[in-house]
Amino acid sequence: MRNLLKLFAVILLMGTTASINAQTLKFGHIDLQALVQVMPERTTAQTEMNDFQADIEEIFGGMQTELQQKYTEFEQLGEEASEVKRNAKITEIQDLQQRIENYRATAQQQIQQKNAEVFQPIVEKAQKAVEEVAKEQGLIYVFDINAVIYKSNQSIDVLPLVKKKLGIE
């Protein structure tokens, strides 16, 4: 009886192992960046970002022009200008340089925030489509091709499937 139980346990274990091995694990890969590049929403977002950056550069350019004018005024004071006038001009120049540096730092933060605000919904839409395709295809993982060290021929490229799901040719 004990031998029969042991034999049954061994057969059950072998059967379970065989069924686990028989399951095919399916993996996929995608170049998410390439997908975002071909999404129609990206063009609108890129235009919005370009306009935003142009506004920032216009303000920055005005500040640079003002600084150049202050330098020119300082140089035109000449040697006969009083020490008070020269020091006042130097202080104006230093203050403006500080404002420019502060603006540069603030502008960088604003650009990063705007970039996230504009492109994040597009990336989320792409990721959602990838998730839906992965579920439809029975994939257990989908890797971004830009972060994969090795890619087997058995991995499924889901980019064409996701593009089709999003209606992109």
Rank of each mutant, 00 (worst) to 15 (best):
R2Y: 06
L5Q: 14
L5K: 12
L7I: 09
F8I: 11
F8Y: 06
A9N: 06
V10T: 02
L12A: 13
L12F: 11
M14A: 02
G15K: 03
G15D: 07
T16S: 04
T17S: 11
T17F: 14
A18Y: 13
I20D: 00
I20C: 10
A22V: 08
A22R: 04
T24Y: 06
L25N: 12
F27A: 02
F27N: 04
L32K: 01
A34R: 10
L35F: 10
L35C: 01
V36T: 11
Q37D: 15
V38K: 09
V38R: 09
M39D: 15
M39L: 11
P40H: 11
A45K: 08
A45I: 10
A45W: 07
Q46F: 07
T47K: 14
T47Y: 12
E48C: 07
M49I: 15
M49C: 08
M49A: 10
N50V: 08
F52P: 03
F52I: 09
Q53V: 13
A54W: 02
I56K: 04
I56V: 06
I56W: 09
E58S: 13
F60Y: 12
G62K: 14
Q68L: 08
Q68T: 12
E73C: 01
E73Q: 06
F74M: 12
E75H: 05
E75L: 08
E80G: 00
A81R: 01
E83H: 00
E83R: 02
R86S: 05
N87W: 05
A88H: 04
I90A: 14
I93N: 11
Q94S: 15
Q94A: 15
Q94E: 15
D95P: 09
D95T: 15
D95F: 12
L96K: 13
E101P: 03
Y103S: 10
A105W: 08
T106K: 12
Q110Y: 03
Q112M: 06
Q112F: 02
K114P: 10
A116I: 03
A116W: 03
A116Q: 09
F119V: 10
Q120C: 04
I122A: 05
I122K: 10
V123F: 14
E124Q: 14
K125F: 04
A126Y: 09
Q127K: 15
A129W: 08
V130E: 06
E131P: 06
E131H: 04
E132S: 07
E132C: 09
E132R: 05
E132V: 07
A134Y: 12
K135V: 07
K135I: 04
Q137D: 02
G138Q: 00
G138V: 00
I140M: 08
V142L: 05
V142W: 08
F143D: 08
D144V: 10
N146Y: 02
A147Q: 14
A147W: 02
A147R: 13
I149A: 09
Y150D: 03
K151M: 15
S152R: 13
S152M: 13
S152C: 09
N153D: 14
I156Y: 01
D157G: 07
P160F: 11
P160T: 02
K163A: 15
K164R: 11
